[in-house]
Structures are given as C-alpha cells and as structure tokens.
Design a protein around this nucleic acid. Sequence first.
DNA 1: AATAACCCCTGTTGGC
DNA 2: TGCCAACAGGGGTTAT
Length: 297
Amino acid sequence: MPELPEVEVVRLGLRPAVTGARVRGVDVLDARSLKRHRDAAGVVKNAADFVAALEGAELCAPQRRGKFLWIPIEPARDEVPRALIAHLGMSGQLLVREPGALDDRHTRIRIRIENPRGDVYELRFADQRCFGSLAVDALVSVGASVVPSQVMHIARDPLDAAFDAVAVRNRIRSSSRAIKAVLLDQQVVSGVGNIYADEALWRARMHWARPASSVSARKVDELLVHARAVMEQALAEGGTSFDALYVNVNGESGYFARSLQVYGRAGEPCNRCGTVIVREPFVNRSSYRCPRCQRQR
DNA sequence: AATAACCCCTGTTGGC
DNA sequence: TGCCAACAGGGGTTAT
C-alpha cells in the first residue's frame, strides 16, 4: 500500500477541497469498499447507513495516524462525534475530481462535496484489490488525542509530534521477533510498510532478520531516526509510485521511487559498496538488502 | 501473552 | 500465442 508518506500526500491534497465542505451526495458502487463500516459489535453495516451518515454532513480538516486517514464530521448538537475514515489498503486511491470528469478505473465510491466557496468536487475512492475501505466511525478520546475507534490500537507514527522514541525503542527491544517484523507492527510504531522498512534497515546497516531483542538501544534509536528521515524525504518527493496504483488526489505519481536504495533493486549494485542487492522471502512478501552492508550478526 | 499462519481481492508480469 | 504461477506497497482474524 501506500505507506505513511503516500497517505500524507493524500491528506495534504484533500485538505483544501474538503475542509469546511458539505456532502451533497454519495454513490456506493461497490459495497466491498465499506468493509470497515461496522457497528460497535464489529458487524458490517449496509451502504444505506453509510450514505445516511454522510448526506448533508459538514467535513473538517483531514487527519492521519500511520496509514489511517480520517475526516472528522462537524457534530450536530447532542450527537456522537464521528468521522469519515479511509484506509487505502494495497491499492486504494482518493481522488478529487471535477464533477463529470472522466471516470477513474476501479471507482467504488463517489462523494460529491461543495466547499464554502461554492466549488463542487467529486471525491472518488478507487481501489483495484478492494483491501482498502471507507467507513463512518465514532471518534473517541484516548489520552490527549481524539481518534476513530478503529484507530485506537494504532501506535503513533514517527512524524507525530507526540511520538515517544524512547518508549518505542524499549518496546521494540522487548520482542524476540525479527527487527523488521516489529518495525512493521502498527501497534508498536505506525506508518512504516515494506518499502520504508527495507530502506530504513539499509540506512541503519541492519539485517532484517535480527532478533529485535539482540539490537542495542543505540542501534534501535538509529533505526527509528532513519525510518523517520526516509519517510520525510519520500513525503517531500511526493511519495513512492511503482506503477499507477499509488497516486495523489490528482492522479499523479510521486518521485521517490528513483531514490530507493534497496527496495525493488535486486540484482543492482548497492550505492554504498557496489555489492549486488538481494531479494529474500519474508512473510509472503520480499525483503531487499545489501549482503555486505547488512549482515546478520 | 506473543507470535506465526492464513485470509481477504484483482491485475500484471515473467517463465515455460 | 497462451497458460499459469508468482507477485504486488495493507490489516485483521484465527490458530498455536
């Protein structure tokens, strides 16, 4: 999927179009894209309920934690605060289009909005693989923050001002799992996916399979600094696009793919030492690393 | 409790 | 040319 930088690019793109806008109509073309639209017991609610929850709603500025995106709804009196939440999964896109613009492939849901200036846009959720979803979810308070109930268990991400690097480092080091598996665990640190995990590990010169508990505190701190740095850099370059699956709200690709050091570069030389990058199986996916810079030890 | 295995989907690509 | 397996950036649930 879109990982943190890609989701943040989408959030920034949505902001001017949706902040203060009012929902004028909703079309659910494929209810599979509402699998996260559930009641408190976790039972999926129907499309009509989703539409009713959004019709006429006033949207606030979009928020993000890790790879989750949400748009709080201005609450009516005596109503539970709620938000339109989005997870892009592996192939989800949120596009802002002019009304009547040419159809986007795999469009599953359309939301027509009108902003305070009277501009009308069509917010489109397109998703090839249907791993992503939209939903309307209750907002709940967790400590100092307010997040959708489905995001409660998601840890803060490295770009969050309240990210506690020391606590996260200690949590990482308390696990016997492979360091990469822990880095990908959204309940430990959120926002990092397969691409940026590999890139951060390369920058830290660390083998993905090292037991997290065997890595020194200093090295874990370093790894987290690299994870944050690589995601910030990717964000500045508009995110990573390998193909047309990840795009911003205008349907445009990001430029960070050209800056990747290991991900997707099997057979190519490491830019640090010239050794050929290898691809290794890792939980039904792949890990890329430099065999010389990132040795297991 | 923590961890591993498997599930959800569709489309593209590369080897035979 | 055609077929089929492998693969693709996700999270969640179930089993161990």
